[in-house]
Design a protein around this nucleic acid. Sequence first.
DNA 1: AACTGGACCAACCGCCTCAGT
DNA 2: TACTGAGGCGGTTGGTCCAGT
Length: 300
Amino acid sequence: MATNDETLCLLEREGDAMVALEGDAYLPLGLLHPLLINSATLLSLYKRIEGDRPQSSGGLDRRRVINQSINQSMGRSPCCEKAHTNKGAWTKEEDDRLVAYIRAHGEGCWRSLPKAAGLLRCGKSCRLRWINYLRPDLKRGNFTDDEDELIIHLHALLGNKWSLIAARLPGRTDNEIKNYWNTHIRRKLLSRGVDPVTHRPIADSTEKKPPSAIGFMSNQTEVKKEDKTTSIPTPTAATSSSSEEYESPAWRRQRKPKLPDLNLELCIAPPFPSQLEALTIIEMDKPPPEALILEECWIL
DNA sequence: AACTGGACCAACCGCCTCAGT
DNA sequence: TACTGAGGCGGTTGGTCCAGT
């Protein structure tokens, strides 16, 4: 099948939105972002994990396992010498040093930056401080209603992909949006009677669903009415990424193929139109039975 | 005035990705 | 192909502030 950037096949597999690759290989749609990954990268990524995959559906689960084993075998050293680094809140002097250094030398090589700048900080800490607080292009102040709505729409499409959401809000950081979501927007949605995890009316979304960016809740499958106390999920529960919690076999059995809950009415113009790529969804030679054939969709 | 609990958010932690060798 | 390591990401923590009692 074609796998260039213009022609990708979107389909549902085991309840999640997937992009079909060669053969019967798939990747979650959430991993596909035209700004960060092209199809060639996608393919090489998948080939790396394919290996001795016993069955067509086994490769995806192997991905995490393989990466974990790679990292463990590497015996990775810590990113910095923790015994000699400051932690906690940054002082004005540290901020000044960091800003002065980056103004003089630019960003890059965060690992060596602390030493070069005379800071007793981990490189990661410097990077975070710069990106989330010191960067000159940051927009300080309250979020506007338009930004609220854009975040809500993007979250419905992308899930907790805060960096991707932040990329659509100039001057906002992923950390800022994540915090804002957990403290304001969640409550805002709940007050509207909308589940902040599934973006569905609370009455329809009391059953646990996969944390995928696009919901595939079956139309035919009526939500069980047991214990419908619409309890407000805690931030921790809401942000849980444990796939096992959601992917019980019983839950899968209840689902039937249906169109994804794509919010195709999303009409807020993206700030960087040139970065968007239209992905035409084409039919495969032998489409899987659940293949979702769409005319065209925008992957933000 | 002292205490308590919730809201907020900066910062950290651990894992993942991917380019380079 | 395997290994390495820097950079990046999402989840979580913990300090601070403030309103309510």
